[in-house]
């Protein structure tokens, strides 16, 4: 596969994964914010995660749900808005139209046209907010489904998954880190499940949590689910396992001399989760742990880009 094509496939999927993440978080927070006395997250922390706004700008926006949603979803001036990300995903898809299926291209293209409908922007400030978020969400899920059922398995597919799971792993780490920051990283003190709801819903894991974890040690359980649970598709462990599989396939027959270094870098990162005792997680220095994990992910990204996308 051409390195340029691989690069575009990686980023197309990575942007689409980020879109889903923003939509899930925005939807969750919007619904939760309609209730009074909700603890666990604020628009401020969401803007800090998903935008490059300065503190002063965030303060100006706080309290204006409609405007915040517009900025997160449909603002052209926000490089990380859903509209901008879909536009970038489409730009990448456009450059690889002959390498993705017609069905996938048409859905990405159609999603792009939907995000460009001006009337949806106005709807975000009124009672139809959820309709718009759901419309976007439906398109993003259809993209994922179409890609799953129509794309040929092989190098391209593995590269796409690489993008998807790198993004997903990073999002889970960032969201969890931010949530723990809200608790000042104090997880030895037991928290109510309602305080974790926002994080779990944002990762599509609330129902799974209720079904899988029966004790009231919510701090321990939630951290287990989002970091170590290999059956939970948004856990760090699940993403790293998927990355492991993709990388193992991609390096077959590749004689690039930097491959051993890539394997070592990934192995060290994977081991930090794989061989960590989950029972001690709440007693660790979580701030440092998350920072190290995020840094390692960035290094991994740089190294794999250098090998697969250097053109």
């Amino acid at each position: 596969m051409l390195s340029r094509i691989a690069d575009s496939m990686f980023w197309m999927n990575r942007y689409m994964e980020r879109v889903r993440s923003i939509l899930r978080v925005a939807r969750t927070h919007y619904i939760i914010s309609l209730d009074r006395d909700v603890k666990g997250a604020s628009w401020k922390s969401i803007l800090e995660i998903f935008t490059l706004l300065e503190e002063k700008e965030i303060k100006e926006l706080e309290g204006q749900t409609g405007k915040i949603l517009q900025y997160l979803l449909t603002a052209s001036e926000n490089e990380n808005s859903v509209k901008s990300l879909v536009s970038k995903a489409r730009e990448n898809a456009r450059g690889i139209q002959d390498n993705i299926t017609k069905e996938l291209w048409e859905e990405v293209n159609s999603f792009y046209h939907v995000t460009n409908q001006p009337h949806l922007n106005h709807k975000l400030t009124g009672p139809d907010t959820l309709d718009v978020i759901d419309l976007f969400m439906r398109h993003s899920i259809i993209c994922s489904g179409i890609s799953d059922i129509t794309m040929q398995r092989g190098t391209g597919w593995d590269i796409m998954k690489l993008g998807k799971y790198m993004e997903r792993c990073m999002e889970t780490l960032i969201l969890t880190d931010k949530h723990c920051e809200f608790f000042q990283y104090e997880l030895e003190k037991e928290r109510d499940i309602t305080q974790w709801r926002f994080l779990l819903l944002s990762l599509s894991g609330y129902e799974a949590y209720l079904k899988s974890y029966r004790t009231f040690k919510h701090n321990q359980n939630v951290m287990h689910q989002v970091l170590f649970n290999e059956d939970f598709p948004h856990s760090v462990s699940y993403s790293l396992n998927m990355l492991d599989k993709c990388l193992s396939k991609l390096i077959v027959g590749n004689k690039n001399p930097e491959i051993p270094d890539l394997i070592r870098t990934f192995g060290k990162l994977h081991a930090k989760i794989k061989y960590l005792d989950p029972s001690i997680i709440c007693h660790m220095d979580l701030q440092t742990f998350f920072m190290e994990m995020r840094t390692d992910m960035k290094i991994l990204h740089a190294k794999q880009s250098n090998i697969f996308f250097s053109y």
Binding site: M1, S3, L250, N254, K255, F308, F309
Partner: peptide, 20 residues
């Protein structure tokens, strides 16, 4: 479908730059 930057000429032969 390739762009100019995907191709390279070496010893009067044309190659694409691939992941492998």
């Amino acid at each position: 479908l390739v762009e100019g930057r995907d191709l390279v000429v070496d010893n009067h032969k044309v190659y694409t730059k691939t992941t492998n």
